[in-house]
Write a protein that binds this DNA or RNA. Structure first.
Length: 427
RNA sequence: GGAGAGAUGUCCGAGAGGUCGAAGGAGACGGAUUCGAAAUCCGUUGUGCUACUUUGUGGUACCGGGGGUUCGAAUCCCCCUCUCUCCGCCA
C-alpha cells in the first residue's frame, strides 16, 4: 500500500502511474471516501470525548437526581457513538479495499510499456553456442535420460506436476547447495521456511489469495495458503516489528517449495518445467533503510548474475516495464537465461526476478525501524530469486546437452553432484 | 487428544468497575556528584490515528485478538488465538 496521506497531493503522479501500469482505478472515488472517513472519524472522536467527560463527572459522590440526568445523557451518547462507529467502519473498509489496489510508485527510469515485449534489455552476458546437432528441449532430454516424469505425476497429482528422477534429483540439490553457498558468502542468513503462511501475510506481500485470478492455493477450512514463494514467509518474518537501525540491512535467504495455480497459464511457452504448480526456490530477501534500497537492489541483481555466470549459462537482463512490474514493485530486473530448446531455435526465458518494493509491502506488513532521532519509519523490502530450480533445470539441461544425448554437469556443480556427466542408464 | 494455568509498556511485575496510559522495580537515555569510574541522587523513557496557533500542544484509541454488559471496562461475561505445566500419542 502506498502512503495514503499523499493521495491528494500526488494525485496526478499516481494517476499517471496507474495508466502506465495498465490499470484502471477510480482515484476520485477513493479520495471522496477518504474525506468521508476523515469527517466521520472526527465525529466519532468528538462523541467519545463527550462520553469520557460525562463519565468522569460521575466519579465522585453526587445526589441521585443529578446522577440520573448524567446517566440519561450518557445513554444518548452511547447510542450515537455506536451508530457513527458503524458508519465509519463501513466507509473505512470500502476506502481501504479500494486504496490497497493502488500500485507502488515506479522508478523514473522504468520503461513505460504494456507487456513483457516492452521490457528494456540492459545487458547481455555470454554467447549462445550453436549446436552442430539438433538441440532437444528439456522435456525430451528429461524423457530420454529418465530424469523427469510428467505422465505419472499427472496421474497421481494432476497436470503441471512432475517427478524428478535419478540424477535430476541430485541436480536439484546441487543447484540449491551451490546457490546457498554463494549467498552465505555474501552474508545472508540461510533459512528453510514454512511452505504455508497466513492469509494476512500473503496479502501483506501483495498477493491476492482469493478470487478467479488468484495464483495461489488456499487451504480449505483455514486462513492459510500454500506459499507461492519464500518472499512471503521471509517478509512475514519481521512483520509487525520495529527493527533496530544498526541491524539493517538484514539479508535473508529462504529455501522453500513454491506452489502456483497459474490459472490459464497454458500454451507453448509453458510446456515442461517452465511453468508448473510446484517447484523449489532459493529466495533472497532484504530489509533495509530507504536510502539503501536502490544500491541493495543492484547488489541482488549482481548476485543473481554471479550464480548464472558460475553456471556458465548465457543470459540477458531486462528492466521490467511498467505494465509488467506487479503492484508492489518500484523497479524490477529479470534475468533471462538462454534456453536452446525454447521456441524454434532457442530463446531467452526468465529465470530470476528481483524487485525493489520500497515501503509498499512494509506498510501493510507493518515493518518499521527506529531511526537515530527516535522516530519510526517503514523499511524498504527487496526480494530476488537466487535460483528457481525448475527453470534453472531447463537452462542447465538444454545448454549442457551433447550430441550423444548426455548432459555435462556444469563445473561449478560437480563438487555438489559428485559426477561430471548425466547419461542414459543401461539396465 | 485429555486436564489445568496464564497472556499488562523494552523487560519483570502490580492492578478486582470511575482517581489507570496504567503502581513498583530493572534496563536505557540525559543531568548532578567524581580526576575518571562504580555507587548515590534528580529527571526523561510506548505506539497508531487525528486536529491545530506544526519540531510543540491537544483529542482519541490501544493492557493477546474479536464481541458483549455498563453512563463508565485492563478489571465483569462470551468466543477465538497463543504460551506454559501434567498425561496420552508420535517422527
Amino acid at each position: 500500500m502506498i502512503d495514503l496521506r499523499q493521495l491528494a497531493e500526488r494525485k496526478e503522479e499516481i494517476a499517471r502511474n496507474i495508466i502506465n501500469r495498465g490499470l484502471t482505478i477510480d482515484l476520485d472515488a477513493i479520495l471522496s471516501l477518504q474525506t468521508s472517513r476523515s469527517s466521520l472519524l472526527g465525529e466519532v472522536e468528538l462523541l467519545r470525548k463527550n462520553r469520557n467527560e460525562n463519565a468522569r463527572k460521575m466519579k465522585g459522590r453526587m445526589d441521585n437526581d443529578q446522577r440520573t440526568v448524567l446517566i440519561e445523557e450518557g445513554k444518548v451518547l452511547k447510542e450515537k457513538i455506536s451508530e457513527t462507529e458503524e458508519l465509519l467502519k463501513k466507509t473505512e473498509s470500502e476506502y481501504f479495499n479500494l486504496a490497497k489496489l493502488i500500485p507502488n510508485y515506479a522508478h523514473p527510469a522504468v520503461p513505460v510499456g504494456k507487456e513483457d515485449t516492452d521490457n528494456l534489455e540492459i545487458k547481455r552476458w555470454g554467447t549462445p553456442h550453436p549446436f552442430n546437432f539438433t538441440a532437444k528441449d528439456h522435456v525430451q532430454l528429461g524423457e530420454d535420460l529418465d530424469l523427469i516424469d510428467f505422465e505419472t505425476a499427472t496421474r497421481v497429482s494432476g497436470p503441471k506436476f512432475y517427478y524428478l528422477k535419478n540424477d535430476a534429483v541430485l541436480l536439484e540439490l546441487a543447484l540449491e547447495r551451490y546457490a546457498l553457498d554463494i549467498l552465505r558468502s555474501h552474508g545472508f542468513t540461510l533459512t528453510i521456511t514454512p511452505d504455508i503462511a497466513r492469509q494476512e501475510v500473503v496479502e501483506g506481500i501483495g498477493f491476492n489469495p482469493r478470487g478467479e485470478e488468484s495464483n495461489i492455493y488456499t487451504i480449505e477450512g483455514t486462513d492459510t495458503c500454500l506459499v507461492g514463494t519464500a518472499e512471503i514467509t521471509l517478509g512475514g518474518y519481521h512483520a509487525g516489528q520495529i527493527l533496530k537501525e544498526d541491524d539493517l540491512p538484514i539479508l535473508m535467504s529462504g529455501l522453500s517449495h513454491c506452489f502456483r495455480r497459474e490459472a490459464g497459464g497454458a500454451g507453448q511457452y509453458s510446456k515442461g518445467l517452465y511453468r508448473v504448480h510446484q517447484f523449489s526456490k532459493v529466495e533472497m530477501f532484504v530489509y533495509c533503510r530507504p536510502e539503501q534500497s536502490e544500491q541493495l537492489h543492484e547488489k541482488l541483481l549482481t548476485i543473481e548474475e554471479e550464480i548464472f555466470r558460475g553456471l556458465g549459462i548465457p543470459y540477458r537482463i531486462v528492466d521490467t516495464c511498467t505494465g509488467d512490474l506487479g503492484a508492489p514493485a518500484y523497479r524490477k530486473f529479470d534475468i533471462e537465461a538462454w534456453m536452446p530448446g525454447r521456441g524454434s531455435s532457442g530463446e531467452y526465458g526468465e529465470v530470476t526476478s528481483t524487485s525493489n518494493c520500497t515501503d509498499y509491502q512494509a506498510r501493510r506488513l507493518n515493518v518499521r525501524y527506529r531511526k537515530e532521532d527516535g522516530t519510526n519509519e517503514f523499511v524498504h523490502l527487496i526480494n530476488g530469486t537466487a535460483i528457481a530450480i525448475s527453470r534453472a533445470l531447463v537452462a542447465v539441461m538444454e545448454n549442457y546437452q551433447r550430441a550423444d544425448g548426455s548432459i555435462v554437469v556444469p563445473e561449478a556443480l560437480v563438487p555438489y553432484m559428485g559426477i561430471t556427466r548425466i547419461e542414459k542408464k543401461h539396465r
